[in-house]
Design a protein around this nucleic acid. Structure first.
Lengths: 215, 215
DNA sequence: TCAAAAGTGTTCCGAATACACCCATGA
DNA sequence: TCATGGGTGTATTCGGAACACTTTTGA
C-alpha cells in the first residue's frame, strides 16, 4: 500500500455446478455484446462499491438463476493483465453447487444454459475471457474436496437414495466405487427416512437424509 | 459484468511465514502513516495496472525482505466493505514460506519484524485493517496443507536432519509426533546426503535432502 | 421365473499407531 | 559412565479394498 494508488475494475464470476443427466454441468450465459459477442461465459457481475464479493456472487446467482441459499464459496482470484481486452479487470471467482431440481424449479434466466463440463474442458466449446481456466480450476477444487468434505450432498435433494448419492461421488471423482464400501463410508453421515423410492423394475431403495448433528 | 462499471482499489498483501526459535513466525511491518499509524500490518502493495497479483506479491516480498524464488501461493481475497477506512479496497492475500536462514541472510527491511503467530492470534498484538483475519485464515490453510503436501520442506534449509524436519511438522500441526512413525512416513520423500550434523552433546544426526523425482 | 439393481456380511491387506529397544556423542 | 537425543525393528490396530452373497421388485 505504498506505490501508486490505482483503481481497477473488479468482476465477480460464478461457476455454478450441478449434476443432471448423469453428468457434471455448468451454467453459462451468452454474451450479448463485444468483446466475445455471442460466446458463452460464466455469469458474473461488476463488484459494486458497497457490496462484498460474496454478496456480488449471490446477486449474480439470483439474477441469472433465481437461486438463493445454496452452497457458495470463493474459488480463486484471476488477475492476468490481458484477461479482459477492454480494460484491466480482475475476477474474483466463486463456485456454487446445487441439485438440479432446485435449478429447474427456479426461474432460470432465458439467457442461461446448462453445459456439460466435459464439453467445455475438452475444448469443444470456446468460452469468453479466461473462463475456461476458471472452470478447470473449479473442477479441480471440486474433485479435491469430495473426499474430505460433504459437498457431494449439495448435488442431491433433501431425500435421496444411496445409489443416487454414490453416482454423484462417482461423477465428481471420475471413477467407479464399490457399493458395499461406499455404504460403509457414507452410513455415519446419513439416516434413513423410512420412506422408499418405488416404481422401478427392481428392488426399491430406501430414502435417506443427511444427518445433522455429530454427537 | 452488466451493472455499473466501477473501479476500486486493489491491495496485494503477503503473509510470510517462517519458523525460528521453535515457533511459527510472521513478518510484519509498522505503518508509518494514518490510518492505523504505528500499528503492525502485513507487508502489501497496491496492485498496478500492468502487473498480475502474483507479480505484485513478489514485488512486495522483494521490497520488504529481499526474498525471491520462495514458495508463494494465493490465499484468499478479502473484500469487506469497511476493511479500509479510507476508501473501498479489496485485498488479494498471498502466503509465502521460507526457512529462517534465507530470511536473515537477505536484507530484511528495517521496518520489517518477525512476530510469533501465537502472539498475534491470541489477540495480544493488534493489527491494522483486517490483517488478523488474514493471518487466521492463512494459519488454517497452512495446518491443513501440511498433511497432504510437502510444504513443511519450505521451512528447512536444503540440507536438514530428520529431527529438525519433525519439529517443523509438530509446530505446524500443533501436536507431537512419534519419532519412529514420522521417519517411516517421511523416508520415501528424502535421501541422505552422507553428511552428519555434529557438535552437540549427543549422537550426531544424519543430514538429508528432499528427494527430487518420484519414479 | 428371471433380469436388474438394492442391500449386507466377511475376508484381506496395507498403512498408521504404539511400543520397545539400541546407538553415538560430549561432558 | 551417563545423560541426551538420534536411530531402528516389531507387534497391533484400524480402515479401505475386494469378494461373495441375499433380497425385492416389475416385467
Amino acid at each position: 500500500m505504498n506505490t501508486k494508488h490505482q483503481k481497477i475494475s473488479v468482476a465477480v464470476d460464478v461457476l455454478l455446478f450441478t449434476i443432471s443427466d448423469d453428468k457434471l454441468q455448468i451454467v453459462l450465459t451468452k454474451r450479448s455484446s463485444e468483446p466475445f459477442k455471442d460466446m458463452y461465459c460464466l455469469p458474473g457481475v461488476s463488484l459494486q462499491e458497497n457490496e462484498t464479493p460474496e454478496e456480488a456472487a449471490e446477486r449474480s446467482l439470483r439474477e441469472r438463476t433465481g437461486l438463493t441459499d445454496i452452497f457458495l464459496e470463493q474459488l480463486y482470484t484471476f488477475g492476468d493483465t490481458e484477461r479482459d481486452p477492454r480494460s484491466r479487470t480482475i475476477s474474483i471467482a466463486y463456485y456454487a453447487l446445487t441439485d438440479p431440481d432446485k435449478l429447474l424449479s427456479s426461474n432460470l434466466n432465458e439467457a442461461a444454459v446448462l453445459m456439460p463440463a466435459d464439453r467445455i474442458l475438452s475444448g469443444r466449446i470456446k468460452l469468453a475471457f479466461d473462463h475456461k481456466k476458471i472452470i478447470e480450476y473449479g473442477r479441480m477444487r471440486l474433485k479435491g474436496k469430495v473426499s474430505y468434505s460433504d459437498i457431494a450432498f449439495e448435488f442431491v435433494p433433501e431425500d435421496f437414495t444411496l445409489p443416487q448419492l454414490q453416482k454423484v461421488y462417482e461423477i465428481l471423482l471420475g471413477e467407479e466405487l464399490y457399493k458395499a464400501n461406499f455404504r460403509k463410508m457414507i452410513s455415519p453421515k446419513v439416516e434413513a427416512t423410512g420412506e422408499m423410492l418405488t416404481g422401478l423394475a427392481h428392488r426399491p431403495s430406501r430414502l435417506y437424509r443427511r444427518k445433522k448433528a455429530r454427537p
